[in-house]
């Protein structure tokens, strides 16, 4: 049983990393967006592996469904004729940036390895009950009622802001 989990983790993890690398290296923004959608599906598979089924579905619905459709619409709205001329050459600045990012990754992996190796080796037995929609809904609307209202206000402000920003003329 644990073996199947390890195999699934490896498949989802390797595909997620691969699609992320493909996403940041494609020239065409549409190809990038499609690789990012693939990456979101793989991360959703990892959520299923972690027994967070409701979040996994929400991930597909909100990220792969709503947000990425918005991205693809905007990419298609912009007339990116000069996209080929966009200078994406390797400079010393970029190579230094990559090196420091890899240094950051090594530092974080080291920290995790020092603090969490051989701790928490199994998924908690309560994981299945806490990630049910029933439990999450109860927590969200009873314990976190005020943050939910604040998020509603934030989304309203976002709608108004997006319409104002994308309007033809400011005046």
């Amino acid at each position: 049983m644990e073996n199947i989990q390890l195999i699934l983790y490896t498949v989802f993890g390797v595909l997620a990393i691969f699609s992320a690398i493909m996403m940041i290296t494609r020239r065409n923004p549409i190809a990038s967006a499609l690789w990012l959608i693939f990456n979101f599906f793989m991360i959703s598979g990892l959520y299923f592996l972690l027994r967070a089924q409701f979040i996994a579905i929400i991930q597909i619905l909100v990220y792969a469904g709503a947000i990425m459709v918005l991205f693809i619409f905007v990419i298609m709205l912009l007339k990116l004729t000069d996209e080929k001329k966009l200078s994406e050459i390797m400079t010393y600045q970029k190579i230094t940036a990559i090196l420091f990012s890899i240094l950051l990754m090594a530092l974080l992996v080291f920290t995790v390895y020092v603090n969490f190796a051989d701790k928490y080796t199994e998924i908690s037995t309560e994981a299945e009950t806490i990630s049910k929609a029933e439990n999450l809904g109860r927590e969200l609307f009873l314990k976190y009622a005020f943050p939910i209202e604040a998020i509603g206000l934030l989304l309203l402000a976002t709608i108004v802001g997006a319409v104002v920003l994308a309007k033809k003329k400011f005046e």
């Binding site: 644990e2 989990q5 390890l6 983790y9 993890g13 997620a16 990393i17 992320a20 690398i21 940041i24 990456n39 991360i43 990892l46 592996l49 972690l50 940036a97 990559i98 990012s101 890899i102 950051l104 990754m105 974080l108 992996v109 995790v112 390895y113 969490f116 190796a117 051989d118 701790k119 928490y120 080796t121 199994e122």
Partner: peptide, 20 residues
């Protein structure tokens, strides 16, 4: 076993790719 540090490591790798 798939333990917590596996998932944290994967998360760190994806985060670093995003930074790059």
């Amino acid at each position: 076993m798939v333990s917590l540090d596996y998932f944290l490591t994967l998360s760190i790798i994806l985060f670093s790719i995003g930074v790059i």
